[in-house]
Design a protein around this nucleic acid. Structure first.
Length: 415
RNA sequence: GCCGGGAUAGGGUAGGGGCUAUCCUGGGGGACUGUGGAUCCCCUGACCCGGGUUCAAAUCCCGGUCCCGGCCCCA
């Protein structure tokens, strides 16, 4: 027996159906926000990922040399590809609003919520420097989670690199990058070690920084506690815009994320119980597109992997039932296969999901099968068909009746 | 890349140097070719892989693989 590769998943029909339902809801929410779906290659030149992320990231790719001697990799993220696509099309009408839900690969050790192959939903807006785009993207992220039944089960934590830099300068910190790096580690190391690191990076400002990091809450509350600033005004405007969408964020300046390239707000959605990794993350990255040869293009977006999402949806009991499903199963009585097939085909053309017996086994066995595939109705095609009638059995209740073939569509639609 | 815990039919499990490896469930067939979820019968099907210790290994030891979780990293 062959084994599965580490960190990869087999997807059987029951689970696939549930996942398809979730993915569809996510995609249709994005479409509802006026985003347009794109797709892209699953492999790119490895070099593409060095541009933005450097060698550390390249170590964690599934890469290989192709037959032409090129260094190729399965994509570990979508942003460089999207930037490349954007750079080679100067006729795009702005704002560009794109989403995609591709598979991605990262060569890492699997653990909770992390695999080597996964799907990641991505949505981005290009060409808008104003906070309106940040609001639209944040609102989409939250609406997606809400529409999946997670309303109130997660917290959208937002920070802002510009505000943080303003504050650090105000506190007299000179080594800003290093200080960010220390802050990023805050929750992963013991408190005393964190304090030590922070003092070595930020010196006397450490105490003030701690105060800022510990203030978490609504935008208004946090800004009033840390003091007025031009950037604070913009964040207040962000929440004001989000009020129009009916969404609330939490300002939490301890969120750092992707030190390398975010240039404005950054955000992460976490499950409210704090049990899992971030469900999604994103922010503004105005300086990235030009790295890939495009014009300087304002950009804001987020990515959301399917693994953590599934964990939290299951814990909250909102993950769809994992079971196969068809609308009807056509049971065939010996001698009536042709009529049965015609009935099945007519229903299939109406858009119903219809299975039909292929075995010629006993009616009892056929119904047992119908039961196993969760058919809503069994349609028994036998003698009655000579008079244009069939027996329809509701597999849930067991009720059955003899009806004209023309009535089938209506009956199946009832459910 | 590193660390901890696991691995017995398709799924869930019992056993823990020696007899035909336990039970539940599933799958196929039959009782029953015009009625499923019930019952009974038959069939199917497993000790992760490789090496070592031993008269004898599913069991003990070593290595690998995969699974679960943690570290690093998290784009």
């Amino acid at each position: 027996m062959f084994r599965k590769l580490k960190g990869f998943r087999d997807m059987y029909p029951e689970k696939m159906r549930a996942r398809r339902e979730v993915f569809e809801r996510i995609n249709s929410t994005a479409r509802g926000f006026g985003f347009h779906e794109i797709d892209a290659p699953s492999v790119e030149l490895l070099e593409l990922f060095r541009v933005k992320s450097g060698d550390e990231i390249v170590k964690q790719t599934f890469s290989f040399v192709d037959k032409g001697g090129r260094e190729i990799t399965l994509i570990p993220e979508l942003t460089p590809t999207v930037a490349r696509m954007l750079a080679s099309r100067k006729d795009l009408v702005k704002p560009v609003k794109w989403f995609s839900f591709p598979k991605m690969w990262r060569y890492e050790e699997p653990q909770s919520g992390r695999l080597r192959e996964f799907y990641q939903f991505n949505a981005d807006i290009f060409g808008i420097a104003g906070i309106e785009a940040d609001a639209e993207v944040l609102a989409l992220a939250m609406e997606i989670l809400d529409s999946l039944g997670l309303e109130g089960k997660y917290v959208m934590r937002v920070s802002d690199r510009i505000l943080m830099e303003e504050l650090l300068k105000k506190f007299g910190v000179s080594r800003v990058e290093e200080t960010f790096r220390v802050i990023d580690k805050k929750d992963k190391i013991p408190e005393d070690v964190f304090m030590e690191n922070l003092q070595s990076a930020a010196g006397d400002a450490a105490e003030k920084i701690i105060d800022v990091l510990n203030v978490k809450g609504s935008v208004g509350d946090v800004i009033s506690k840390i003091g007025e600033s031009s950037r604070g005004e913009i964040l207040i405007k962000l929440q004001d815009l989000l009020d129009g969408y009916g969404k609330k964020i939490t300002l939490d300046l301890s969120i750092v994320r992707g030190l390398a390239y975010y240039s404005g707000i950054v955000f992460e959605a976490h499950d409210a119980k704090g049990e899992f990794r971030a469900i999604l993350g994103g922010g503004r990255y105005d300086n990235v597109v030009q790295l890939f040869g495009g014009e300087h293009t304002p950009a804001v977006g987020f990515g959301m992997g399917d693994a953590v999402l599934e964990l939290i949806m299951k814990r909250e009991g909102v993950w769809p039932e994992e079971r196969m499903e068809v609308d009807a199963f056509v049971a065939v009585v010996p001698g009536f296969r042709k009529e049965a097939t015609q009935i099945a085909m007519n229903l299939r053309k109406e858009g119903f999901r219809v299975d039909i017996d292929l075995t010629g086994r006993s009616l009892g066995k056929q119904l047992k099968y119908a039961n196993r595939i969760n058919a809503k109705y069994a349609i028994i095609v036998g003698e009655e068909v000579r008079n244009g009638k069939v027996v329809v059995k509701d597999m849930e209740t067991g009720e059955q009746r003899t009806v004209g073939i023309g009535k089938l569509k209506e009956i199946i639609n009832e459910n």
